[in-house]
Every structure is written in C-alpha cells, then in structure tokens.
Design a binder for these strands. Structure first.
Length: 154
DNA sequence: GCCAACGTTGGC
DNA sequence: GCCAACGTTGGC
C-alpha cells in the first residue's frame, strides 16, 4: 500500500467536486507530464491512499484524502478531438496518457497550506518542497501521518 | 501573467 | 548524440 499526493486545480476539480460525485468516485485525469504519467501508470494501485492537494489557487494546500479505487487506465480524453486534452499522437493501441479513479475519503478541518509544509522541519523531504512542478508524487508514511495530524488539529 | 524547473522533441 | 527549442506545471 502506497501513499501519494495528487494535485488538482480547485477551479477545475476540487475536493468538494469529488465528494459530490455519485458514490463519491471520480476520475482523476488530464495528466500530461511524463514523470507524473510514469508514477501513475507503473506504481499507483487500487487501495493506495491519496492526499488531495489544491494547486494554482489562492492558498495552495493539502485539503483532504482519497483512495484509489481503480488503477491506471488510458485517459479517454486523449482520443477525443473535441477535448482540450486531445493528443494526436496517442491511439487506443498506443495510449500515451493515463488516469485513475478516486473515492473521496475525508476533508481536512484545517487545510495544510504549502507555506506551512515548507516551514515544517518534518516535511522538508517532501517532493512538494524539493521539486515544485509535479502533479502527482509519492509521499512517505511518516509524512502522511504527520499531515493527517496537522489537518485534523485546531 | 511571468518565469523557473523539468522532460521531450527534433534539427543537425 | 548534442543541445536548443518547446510544452507543461504551478508558485508567486
């Protein structure tokens, strides 16, 4: 069982959007970065735990948790010429981009802001701190535990 | 909306 | 196979 951090722009798809889905299960898609693609395709498994992070917004923060309910499968948007995520170089025989399905888990009472994470000595090794622009990334078990505590306490 | 970090692409 | 150009991401 692995831990991950998934980023999403709340204007596009927020933790509340995920919570509002039927059965609270939604597709996490639109990844067009190869590092993230490789993690998603090769390492993310059903049952893995996910920190849900809001990016490209006023206060970037970890805002809750989710669980992977379906491992990587080809992102349908890459085959759709009407989609903003269309990729002419991808084909159903040779998909280039992948997505997973998530089930909403929890919403933090207190979102943990990026600034807080950067200032926390226990979280200095997070990929989030060391490498800014990566839309999904592995999280260590100790980091997961610590972030959950921060999110729940007042 | 600027631009830095990272990865891929493609001309030579 | 070098490396400049380009695309994506995302904090500021």
């Amino acid at each position: 069982m692995n831990y991950w951090l998934f980023k999403s722009e709340p204007d596009e798809y927020s933790i509340d959007d995920l919570a509002s889905e039927p059965d609270q299960i939604g597709r996490w898609d639109g990844i067009r970065n190869y590092q993230a693609r490789n993690f998603l395709r090769d390492q993310v498994a059903a049952g893995d735990s996910v920190l849900f992070y809001h990016s490209a917004c006023k206060v970037p923060a970890v805002v809750g948790t989710a669980e992977v309910v379906k491992a990587a499968y080809p992102d349908p948007a890459q085959f759709d010429p009407e989609s903003a995520y269309f990729d002419p170089k991808a084909s159903p025989e040779n998909p280039r981009w992948f997505c997973v399905d998530l089930r909403w888990g929890s919403k933090f009472a207190h979102p943990v802001a990026l600034a807080t994470i950067k200032a926390d000595p226990l979280l200095q090794d997070m990929v989030l701190v060391k490498q800014g622009r990566l839309s999904m990334q592995p999280v260590a078990a100790a980091e997961w535990e610590h972030l959950l505590k921060l999110g729940q306490k007042s």
